[in-house]
Design a protein around this nucleic acid. Structure first.
Lengths: 170, 170
DNA sequence: CTCTATGCAAAAGCTTTGCACGCCA
DNA sequence: TGGCGTGCAAAGCTTTTGCATAGAG
């Protein structure tokens, strides 16, 4: 349960190479190191942490290359970003147990409830990490609106800011 | 399942008042409106969205008051922030199904796996929101290190930036 | 050799902070 | 009235972008 750790990194690197070739994306030294850093850690570093780590091996690397690379890797579907994180931090005044549906395209977040999910049993091993305050399910997908948008604009709006939805009075 | 919507807002407002009084926090017009906005919406707005909404009713409100209020509400345990969001966006190169343990204090994120959780059944109603790409569990708690820190410094470091953990070579 | 990716630097956002005034308790 | 909360403005960060150069394919 421990020895396959480095193998995973290898596999991920192989996959990176395959996907990059497929997409006609160049695999530079920097990109390799940035991805290697991410693929080899158990943490979930942010851009700056990756930057500092990679910098030790590639002193000339720049922070904006890290950003651009991570963005590219994300576009290629090789890395994910944690949380809804469309723009700024999002707030929730709902203190009752509930779960989230998040649109990966526009960042829409919707609550949903489920007795079944509220009561899910967590692995005992979690205790090793620390105490548990709360657990909820995060479902990701393409919201109905974005599905429609994706059908018509096959590519024109892959990333937009947010839909403020000032008025929701149809 | 629909008519209690506005009641919920009411309940939350009541709770706000109770907690605020308990904590000796003043309930200003601005704070009321900011909280009301958050308590009354199904979205999970960010600070700016709340600002724009509140601004329509309280034209003199300022964005920094919104930030300060949200921060205070969070300290009072009346609102939560979505995602790990300690500092910047965090990345993940693990594409296999997995789940996250997040420390609410230091922002540490750890993967864990669970066949049981991988296979959880989601409510059909989710389909109404849109397509489903992936679902995972987010467990929040206090990590072991932060528990220790909290024991000694009963209050000295309620919020720190992150633990870069430059070297993890024990 | 061509065209993408990089580095630098500056800009653009988001969030926080210092200070003097205003307002709730 | 006293002291917390607000508004304003400016600073601090994170993230993005323009441009000339360097390097992968």
């Amino acid at each position: 349960m421990r020895k396959s750790e480095s193998n995973r990194s290898e596999q991920r690197l192989e996959r990176l190479k395959a996907v990059a070739k497929e997409a006609g994306v160049k695999l530079t030294h920097q990109r390799l190191e940035i991805f290697r850093e991410l693929a080899g850690t158990e943490d979930h570093p942010d851009a700056d942490a990756i930057f500092r780590a990679v910098q030790q091996r590639v002193p000339t690397v720049s922070l904006d290359t890290v950003y651009r690379t991570l963005s590219k890797l994300h576009d290629l579907g090789l890395v994910t970003m944690l949380g809804p994180q469309r723009d700024g931090v999002r707030f929730d005044a709902n203190l009752d147990p509930h779960h989230h549906y998040v649109c990966v395209r526009c960042g829409l977040v919707r609550d949903f409830e489920s007795e079944e999910l509220n009561g899910l049993r967590l692995p005992d091993a979690l205790k090793n990490f620390g105490s548990i305050v709360d657990a909820h399910v995060e479902v990701r997908g393409l919201c109905a609106e974005c599905q429609k948008a994706a059908e018509s604009n096959r590519d024109s709006a892959p990333k937009q800011k947010r839909e403020p939805r000032e008025d929701s009075t149809p």
